[in-house]
Design a protein around this nucleic acid. Structure first.
Length: 200
DNA sequence: GCAATGATTTACT
DNA sequence: GTAAATCATTGCC
């Protein structure tokens, strides 16, 4: 019943291409017998050439160690002591590229997600923002470095394809005065999706 | 071994 | 709109 993306999908050397192609795919988790999933509607590419990346400049620490694995692994870590951020490791070993999932559109297990978020009714912000995504899907740091071809966390292809003009890359043109490297247009979102935080 | 910090979210004024 | 919450990882002594 699943058509998981093959490892070869993650192991290409163009992280921004992978980030774009992940839009419209379905991220699924299956913990404790509870299946939850959502369409990926916003991603962000990270690589060691961008200083916002934990592994910037090839820096190696115990936490970023997973970045240097082959693509197709999960990378979940705690930010600000409260929020878990879910990333997918891409590219080949020894190359620190990753795609951060920033927003999803709920599909399966909505009841479970509402419960996890402590909500009673459906709200758009349920999957908007990396911390919210992880909470809705039940991800914690214990789900770090999990193989995405196993039956706990995976990404499915469900025949959804967004056209080029439905994908918005940001930050957009207009940042003329600011610095250079921190403003790569490596955030991708689906236009017209009510599930992402509002585009600027 | 200990103190500072962060790829965010939520709530309150 | 601003401020606070919260803890694992990191870097320095």
């Amino acid at each position: 019943m699943s058509s998981k993306l093959p490892l070869s999908f993650y192991r290409r050397d163009d992280v921004t291409l992978i980030a774009r192609e992940l839009l419209g795919k379905v991220l699924c988790t299956n913990f404790e017998g509870k299946l939850t999933s959502g369409i990926i509607v916003e991603t962000e590419a990270y690589s060691q050439s961008e200083k916002a990346c934990h592994a910037f400049g090839g820096k190696r620490t115990p936490r970023t160690e997973v970045f240097y694995n082959d693509g197709g692994l999960s990378y979940v870590y705690l930010c600000y002591g409260i929020h878990y951020l879910f990333n997918i490791i891409t590219n080949l070993a020894h190359t620190a590229d990753a795609v951060l999932i920033r927003a999803i559109e709920p599909v399966d297990g909505i009841e479970t997600m509402l419960e996890r978020r402590g909500m009673t009714k459906m709200e758009h912000r349920i999957g908007a923002g990396p911390g919210s995504v992880s909470k809705a899907l039940g991800l914690t740091r214990h789900h770090n470095a999990i193989d995405l071809t196993e039956d706990h966390i995976w990404v499915e292809k469900r025949g959804i394809n967004y056209k080029e003009d439905q994908i918005i890359a940001s930050p957009r043109v207009g940042v003329d005065y600011a610095g250079d490297d921190a403003f790569l247009p490596w955030r991708y979102r689906v236009a017209d999706s009510p599930w992402v935080s509002k585009a600027k």
